[in-house]
Design a protein around this nucleic acid. Structure first.
Length: 432
RNA sequence: UCCGGAGUAGCUCAGCUGGUAGAGCAGGCGGCUGUUAACCGCCGGGUCGGGGGUUCGAGUCCCUCCUCCGGAGCCA
């Protein structure tokens, strides 16, 4: 193929001839001059062609290229303030590489149902491209954060036996002679085993919840990053979380400013994300909610409205810690100061985005953990290996899980997390 | 699963107390030397979600089913 230049590199190529391959975003023309905006994944480029400067065939091919036609355009790179991006291409040749007839996503408004039916094509639009760039930055920031701190990546299984946070919301699949396997809801329990081998570890991958949820905060398949740290108690855990979240947000502000601008995201609330985050015990949270007029009683879990109310009291993320044991998972460490509660925490994002992290110190006392498993009627034989971790050198440890799509939705300022992943899986969406 | 809302042109929608459909955009043709979702003129385009009922007559009223959207619970 011809030597090719990427749009992002054009500012360094001013005054030279270049060939750019990409897809037609829009064309505009008057009688004697025509414009084409091209997308190549690295940016957007305006191309210009004057009728007098070319032959009739090239002129027609250029000004009539329908939306999303794949083209190669060759011309001189010029600096021009009237062009979005600053650089512009004065076209001398156009080659049609792939025709596009009646592209369904027009530059006008569409409903969400239509857009998600055409997700494979919708992904090409400016907003979606910007969102994917930010997601990419979030993922890279996550990996860099842990790499820089010498955490070891341990990949946990996606196919598991019946083990996890709670039964009843697991996707099932037949598994040879062993009956049923389940798609993992979390890698945490496996990571606890890995933490005893490697100290500080994390896993990062898709997780699955067969919850029949229909809200702006839920997907049936979502990406979660879960670190697990030996010798971290609940306070150490929260310190790591605030450092982690601030690092991710900071990276997006620093490196994806253009995409945040494309999304018209007000970055002021993101600039404020820095340690320390506010900390509020569950008991304090209940008191605060009651003083704000909520009828919630001690012992009840916090709902979406309560979370939004609490988060709106602060200008940056807030931790709520030490929840009642009854509303939290079996593996959480009983609070020595108040055995009605466990040493866990949620991290609530501001601006109504709700829970982005759930974390806890883990129960490291063998007998207490086994009692809890029995108390909840969990199948003890499935947890034998997990109990082993408390028999052979048990250790203080903590960890947390951060939902990637919720984090991306918050950073992008999007109302719904389904746009935060290229091909969202939801109760009513399996196509495309 | 529960509560609320919506299915009319390719898309987004309008269509009142029943009288067999309409606007913008997209598409096609023409015009315009610097456009930024360009603009101006003309043209084609519909089993009104499916089924049943009431009526002389149903997009409109009734029943039912389906699909989608928003919210709740669950959670990341």
């Amino acid at each position: 193929m011809l030597p090719q230049t990427y749009v992002a590199d054009l500012p360094e190529r001013i005054g030279t001839e270049a060939t750019v391959r990409g897809w037609v975003v829009t064309t505009r023309s008057s009688g004697k001059i025509a414009f084409m905006v091209l997308r190549d994944g690295t940016g957007y480029l305006q191309c210009v062609l004057g009728k007098q400067e070319t032959d009739p065939e090239t002129w027609e091919r250029f000004r009539r290229a329908p939306q999303e036609t794949a083209v190669a355009v060759t011309g001189m790179v010029r600096e021009d303030a009237r062009s979005p991006g600053g650089a512009e291409l004065s076209v001398s040749a156009v080659e049609i590489l792939g025709e596009a007839v009646d592209f369904p996503i027009t530059p006008k408004e569409h409903g969400t149902a239509f857009l998600f039916e055409h997700r494979h094509l919708w992904l090409r639009s400016r907003r979606q491209v910007a969102i994917m760039q930010i997601r990419h930055e979030v993922v890279q920031a996550i990996r860099d954060f842990f790499y820089e701190r010498h955490f070891v990546l341990v990949d946990t299984p996606i196919l598991t036996g019946s083990i996890g946070e709670s039964a009843g919301t697991l996707f099932e699949t037949p598994y040879f002679d062993l009956g049923t396997a389940y798609l993992a809801q979390t890698g945490q329990l496996y990571l606890e085993a890995a933490a005893a081998a490697l100290g500080r570890v994390y896993c990062f991958g898709p997780t699955f919840r067969a919850e029949k949820s229909k809200t702006r905060r839920h997907l049936t398949e979502f990406w979660m990053v879960e670190p697990e740290m030996a010798w971290y108690d609940s306070d150490d855990n929260m310190r790591l979380q605030e450092e982690f979240v601030s690092y991710i947000v900071g990276r997006c502000l620093e490196r994806r400013a253009q995409d945040l601008l494309e999304l018209e995201r007000d970055t002021a609330p993101l600039e404020r994300v820095a340690p320390p985050f506010h900390r509020l015990s569950y008991t304090e949270a209940i008191r605060m909610l009651q003083s704000l007029g909520s009828g919630i009683e001690w012992g009840a879990d916090l709902g979406a409205d309560e979370e939004t109310t609490l988060a709106s009291q602060y200008d940056r993320p807030v931790f709520v810690y030490d929840y009642p044991k009854a509303v939290r998972a079996f593996y959480m460490k009983e609070n020595p100061a108040d055995p009605r509660t466990v040493r866990n925490n949620d991290c609530l994002a501001p601006e109504g985005y709700g829970e982005i992290i759930g974390g806890s110190q883990r129960e490291d006392d063998h007998d207490k953990l086994r009692a809890r498993i029995r108390e909840l009627g969990l199948p003890e034989e499935n947890y034998a290996w997990y109990l082993d971790l408390r028999k052979f050198g048990t250790f203080v440890h903590s960890g947390f899980g951060l939902g990637v799509e919720r984090t991306v939705a918050w950073i992008c300022g999007m109302p719904h997390i389904r746009e935060a992943i290229a091909f969202p899986r939801m109760m009513t969406k399996l196509y495309p």
